[in-house]
Amino acid sequence: MRHDKGKDRELAAFLQSRRARLRPEDVGLAASGERRRVPGLRREELAALAGVSIAHYTRLEQGNARNVSAAVLDAVARALRLTEDERLYLHRRAHPEPAPPVETPALRPGLRQLLASMETVPALILDSDTTVVAWNRLGAALWADFAVVPRERRSISHLLFLNADFRRLHGDQLSRVAREAVAHLRTLAARYPGDAALAAHIARMRAESPEFDGLWNALHVRGVTHRVYRLEHPQVGAIEVHGELLPLPDDPPLRLDLFTTVPGSASQAALRRLAAVGTRPASQDC
C-alpha cells in the first residue's frame, strides 16, 4: 500500500522492523551502556554500516525509494543482514516493475493430463493467490475434499486459517505452517504488484482472520518453494510429506505443487494406503 505522495508504507514498516531486530553487538558495534529508547540500531548507525548518508537512508526508511539505486538497496540489505528472500522483497517494493493485470489462464488439457497421470503423487495447481484451481485424486485424499469447497474459499490461506479440518491436519505444526504461508503471500504480493485479485485476497483474509492479520503485520518474508509437512491424517495417521512448488513458465502465475515421501519410510506406506482407500474425487477432467 502506498501513500498518495509516493511513499510506500509497507516498505517503511519492513525496513523499520529489520533495523529494530539488530543489536549493536550483532554488527560489531560496542555497547555504550546507554539505555536506548527503542530496540535495535539507530538510523545513523545503520546508515554508516550501509555507507550511505543519514538523510538518504531516512528517506528510504520513510518509504520514499525514488532515485535509490539497486547498489544502495543491496548495501542496505547487507547492513540489515537480510535473507535472500528479504533482499528480493526490498528490491521489488522499492522498484516495482510495471506489470499488466495478472489473469489466471485456462487450464490446458496437457496440465490436466499431467495431474491425472500422477497416480502415486499428490498434486495440486495453485493460482497466484494460492487458490487450488486443480488437483488429482491423491491430492484431494491427502489434503481436502476440494470439490465441495467453493472456489472463493479454496485458497491455502482460507484453508489454513478458516477451515477447522484443514487446521487439525497440521497438528502441532500449524503455527509454523501458517507463518510460512503468510510470509510466502507477502513475497507474491511484491512479485505481482498488478494482481488485483491477490491484493483483494490479502485484504479479505486480514478482515476475516485476526490470526492472519497479526501474522501479516509481523512482516515475515519468505518464499516457500520446498518444505516439509508433518500431518495427522484422519485416515492413515501420522505422515510426513515433502512439498515442491514448481513454476509453470508457459502458464504464469500458476504453480504445480507436488508431494512425495521418503522411499521405504512409514510415510510412504501411509501414502500408499491412502491411495488405496481415498474416495475424494479429482478436479473435473483429472
Rank of each mutant, 00 (worst) to 15 (best):
P24W: 07
L49F: 08
F166H: 14
A116D: 09
D8E: 14
V236G: 02
P210Y: 02
C286T: 08
R168H: 10
L245M: 06
M1A: 14
F259Y: 02
H233A: 05
G214A: 14
G237Y: 05
K5E: 15
L114A: 06
T279L: 09
E211K: 07
V177Y: 12
V68D: 12
D285W: 13
P150F: 13
W216M: 03
I239G: 05
Y89S: 04
S17K: 07
L198M: 05
V177M: 09
A181E: 10
L82M: 09
Y57R: 10
H56C: 00
S117V: 02
L231H: 04
R227Y: 14
R204G: 13
G110F: 00
R153W: 04
L124I: 13
L258R: 07
Q284L: 10
A140E: 00
I54T: 15
N217T: 13
G33Y: 03
R112H: 11
D165T: 09
P234W: 11
A20C: 02
G51L: 03
L88V: 15
L198V: 01
V262D: 10
D85I: 01
R21T: 04
P253M: 06
A141G: 12
R167S: 08
A30V: 07
H91M: 12
I239V: 15
L271H: 03
A178F: 00
L60Q: 13
R280E: 07
A196H: 12
H95Q: 13
E152C: 12
R23T: 02
V262A: 11
E180V: 07
D251E: 11
V262G: 03
L248T: 07
P100S: 11
R43M: 03
N136S: 04
Y89K: 01
R230D: 08
T261R: 06
P252Q: 09
G40Q: 03
R273N: 06
R18S: 13
Y192W: 12
R168F: 04
V228P: 03
V133M: 03
L245W: 00
L73K: 06
H226Y: 02
V102M: 04
A218H: 03
A270E: 00
R92I: 00
I156L: 15
L82T: 09
Y89Q: 05
A13P: 06
L124V: 08
D4E: 09
R36A: 10
Q113F: 02
L80T: 10
V277E: 13
L162Y: 01
A266L: 09
L174E: 06
K7Q: 05
E232G: 04
E152S: 12
G139N: 08
A141T: 07
R168A: 14
G243M: 03
I54K: 05
S209Q: 00
G63T: 02
G28V: 06
L258D: 04
A70T: 15
I54Y: 00
L274T: 02
D172E: 15
R21N: 01
P252A: 12
R168E: 10
V262F: 01
E240G: 05
K7H: 15
A75S: 15
L90E: 06
W135Y: 06
A65G: 00
Q284S: 10
P252V: 07
T279V: 11
A50I: 05
L115I: 10
Q284D: 15
L46F: 07
P96F: 07
Y229N: 12
P98K: 03
L46H: 09
G110C: 02
D250T: 05
E61L: 12
F14P: 06
P24F: 05
Q268E: 15
